[in-house]
């Protein structure tokens, strides 16, 4: 691959006795959308969360192997985990706005990382709400509680919030699964726009969504990496029997 943004080498993740990810080695291309697919329980979300070290939060997790983001091993003991998470944003399965106003939600990250000036904050908030396609709907009520937004709006707010820390990578854990079709479409369109500037990795169990969005596909099954490759090759000429079966909907 010409330009891997993230490369994973021999990644193993154990939850206590459960071997959740088995020796994964794969590279994720820069400024493209990579879709991680596979039946539920195959380790998709674990894989995604190991890219920004959120897996560590689960008690009894053991991790071995390397995850390099632009050559930096994010599991190295010298690395500041908050810095990694700042560089790699996450859009979770259901929208989880923070318990504060719309404005403060978007400003939360920039404030953490030291942005103080009122005007700069205002600008950041506006820019990222625009980027998430939410600005027009909320510009008159920026200081209303985020909990009052609809689920679709909340998810876009979470997107804006994630973008506001100016990450290089955006992770999405089935980011549309809790939304109605219109909102889901909205998010998908945003993701396609955003890949100009960001490397995007999404987990999805919807094959059609993967076909619509993905440039690169990774197929996991029971914690193992079965097959990966550019989307066109993957869907048109799958190499593995298990991949063909999955694409045909036999799992």
């Amino acid at each position: 691959m010409a330009n891997p943004h993230i490369s994973v080498h021999n990644l193993n993740v154990f939850y206590r006795d459960h071997h959740a990810l088995k020796d994964l080695t794969v590279e994720l291309p820069e400024r493209q959308i990579t879709a991680i697919i596979g039946p539920s329980g195959c380790g998709k979300t674990t894989f995604l969360k190991s890219l920004n070290r959120l897996v560590e939060l689960v008690e009894g997790t053991k991790i071995s192997g390397k995850v390099l983001v632009r050559g930096l091993d994010i599991y190295h003991s010298d690395v500041d985990v908050t810095e990694i998470r700042k560089r790699i944003g996450l859009l979770s399965q259901r929208p989880h706005p923070l318990p504060m106003s719309i404005y403060d939600n978007v400003a939360f990250g920039p404030r953490l990382h030291g942005l103080k000036g009122r005007q700069e904050l205002d600008r950041t908030v506006e820019d990222h709400l625009r980027a998430a396609g939410l600005w027009d709907e909320v510009k008159d009520r920026l200081h209303a509680p985020a909990s009052r937004l609809s689920a679709g709006q909340q998810q876009r707010l979470c997107l804006a919030r994630g973008l506001a820390v100016e990450p290089e990578v955006l992770l999405g854990d089935e980011p549309t699964s809790a939304l109605d079709p219109m909102s889901a479409q909205h998010i998908e369109r945003r993701l396609l726009d955003l890949k100009e500037n960001y490397t995007i990795v999404i987990v999805t169990h919807i094959l059609r969504q993967a076909r619509r969005l993905a440039d690169y596909v990774i197929f996991l099954y029971l914690g193992e990496l079965v097959e990966h490759g550019p989307a066109a090759d993957f869907f048109n000429h799958p190499q593995e029997a298990r991949t063909r079966a999955y694409i045909r909907g036999e799992f």
């Binding site: 500041d80 985990v81 908050t82 810095e83 953490l112 990382h113």
Partner: peptide
């Protein structure tokens, strides 16, 4: 950023 993790 060290100060933040130090605070933590």
């Amino acid at each position: 950023m060290l100060t933040r993790s130090l605070k933590d």
